[in-house]
Amino acid sequence: MRLAVLLSGGKDSLYSCWKAMESDEVVCFVTIQSHNPESYMFHTPNIDLTRLQAEAAEIPLIEWQTEGLEEIELDDLEAAVKEAVRQYGVEGVVTGAIQSVYQAARVQRICNHLHLWSFNPLWLCDQENYLRDLIENRFEVIIAGVFSAPFDDTWLGRTIDHHFVDQLISIRDRYGISLTGEGGEYESFVCDAPFFTRRIAITDSCRAYKNHNGSFLISGAELVAK
């Protein structure tokens, strides 16, 4: 089946893409660029860099702008998916949803409206196993934003490795955070994935941090040989 992957730049969308590629054909990515930093659905630091990820994966990218107003932004997502159907003959949409019924319901409704299949390869997965699997399959993932206690600026730019997972497990219950950050506790950015033909090297970056709220902003990046 010809699939479009909704790409935020983070680990969940790219891992889901990798799983979809095992059985089906990923023919394009769709990225929604939200102008509203409070968007429930789409806002994430470094969203412009999905362009480099698409190039690294050699998969075409549809970039779509939204003002990011609640619920209206869904019309923008629907328009972007329609464009994927028009340009690439997409029959289904893949998301990185894990347990967010808010996001899953909205994408399911759009797919249903457009008569498209909706696939969520990470749905209700065991979160620790998933993170370990990412690491073991050499996804290179960094922390691009933190948005809750107890994360401070030392977490920004960190690589997701086994030590990171162990540390999250040790604080998860005390702070009520999800291991995968799907509750908005942290955001990630993928520099390399098993299906990338080149990896992303970050050449310039800065940290912006205040009161458990911070971003690792990538201002320079390029594709390099693996």
């Binding site: 089946m1 799983k19 979809a20 095992e22 059985s23 089906d24 893949v94 299949w117 696939f119 969520n120 390869p121 990470l122 749905w123 209700l124 997965c125 065991d126």
Partner: peptide, 15 residues
């Protein structure tokens, strides 16, 4: 013929 669906509808129940 759509093995991706197993991850979403079968694996969570098995687990």
């Amino acid at each position: 013929d759509l093995p991706l669906l197993k991850r979403e509808f079968v694996s969570p129940v098995v687990s």
